[in-house]
């Protein structure tokens, strides 16, 4: 493994993620802007978001100063050196922090001290999966703290929400989470949902939904229908961009499902802000770029 190669391309991945808003997200924000009245506060907020995205891309500046939790999703060949890859990724994160693509954003939870290079205990976050190919697929999501704070997990049935163990119950949980968040999660972003799973896997799978593009249709027909219905419902709430009121509260709802225990029925909701930083790259066995994703 050529260290320098890997590191250089992983730094470039971080730079792109932090400074270059994906095209599908930008197009969705533009559609949202076109739906709002010209002089409304929602239009002002959406216009500022688009201007900001253009400025960040042009000058190589982070889209948002909260460069968030760095979540790396790796798909590697069988018997690949994952420890070595994790070490390369940590080195890339350190360098990207020194270059100003990332804020010093990682704190010691006990002492409160700030880690200078964003490499701490369990930070950055790595998810590994083995695949059949010879290439390494790296997808990176930067998830800010504002939207992370408004996520949550429900356990059905929930008497307070009148939510039972069915898709209608799931719908009620998602609507509750979005209503409670109001503008705090920097709406309009994408709502990731996991039906089922455990307390831990539910959160991971809800976040995995963010790897799907805004317009991508769910392959499971029942979930595709629920996604469409929920997006329409959420946007009828009128919370709008930054909670200032408006027609678009979310750009998409993405739902996954995991098997569950008979006793458990969790619905996990994870919110992604409009500054939806997601990039990916396919790297060859020596760390060279095959192609960029998204």
């Amino acid at each position: 493994m050529k260290k320098a190669h890997w590191e250089k391309n992983l730094v470039e991945l971080i730079r792109r993620a932090s400074t270059d808003l994906p095209a599908d997200v930008e197009a969705a924000l533009r559609r949202a802007l076109n739906r709002e009245k010209k002089s409304s506060l929602a239009a002002w907020a959406l216009e500022s978001m688009l201007q900001n995205a253009a400025r960040a891309r042009r000058d190589g500046i982070p889209i948002c100063q909260d460069t968030g939790e760095l979540i790396f999703f790796f798909r590697v060949p069988v018997e690949f050196d994952t420890n070595g890859l994790a070490a390369r990724a940590r080195a890339a994160v350190s360098r990207a922090t020194r270059l100003g693509y990332l804020r010093q954003n990682t704190l010691d939870a006990v002492s409160g001290a700030s880690f200078e290079t964003n490499v701490g205990y369990g930070a950055p976050t790595f998810c590994f999966e083995q695949g059949g190919r010879k290439t390494v697929d790296v997808r990176l999501v930067l998830k800010g703290g504002g939207c992370e704070n408004v996520g949550g997990q429900y356990s059905l049935p929930d008497a307070g929400l009148d939510a039972g163990r069915d898709l209608e119950g799931v719908r009620r949980c998602v609507l509750d989470a979005v209503w409670r968040a109001q503008g705090a999660g920097c709406a309009p972003g994408v709502i990731g949902v996991c039906i089922g799973g455990s307390r831990a896997s539910g959160h991971v799978h809800a976040k995995e939904q963010f790897l799907r593009r805004v317009g991508e249709r769910n392959r499971v027909r029942a979930l595709a229908r629920l996604e469409t219905k929920l997006l329409a419902d959420v946007n009828r709430l009128g919370v709008g961009a930054m909670g200032l009121g408006g027609k678009t509260t979310a750009l998409a709802v993405k739902i996954g499902a995991l098997s569950r225990l008979p006793a458990c029925f969790f619905v996990t909701v994870s919110a992604m802000c409009w500054a939806f930083r997601r990039r990916g790259v396919v790297l060859g066995p020596e760390g060279g770029v095959h192609r960029w994703l998204y």
């Binding site: 506060l41 719908r171 209503w179 009128g238 919370v239 909670g243």
Partner: peptide, 23 residues
């Protein structure tokens, strides 16, 4: 402003909840 939006969205939520999906 937030108080206004919150109250308006609370009413909207009530309407949206009425129109559910089949179990």
């Amino acid at each position: 402003l937030y108080r206004r939006v919150r109250e308006r969205s609370r009413r909207a939520l009530r309407d949206v909840l009425r129109n559910g999906v089949k179990a």
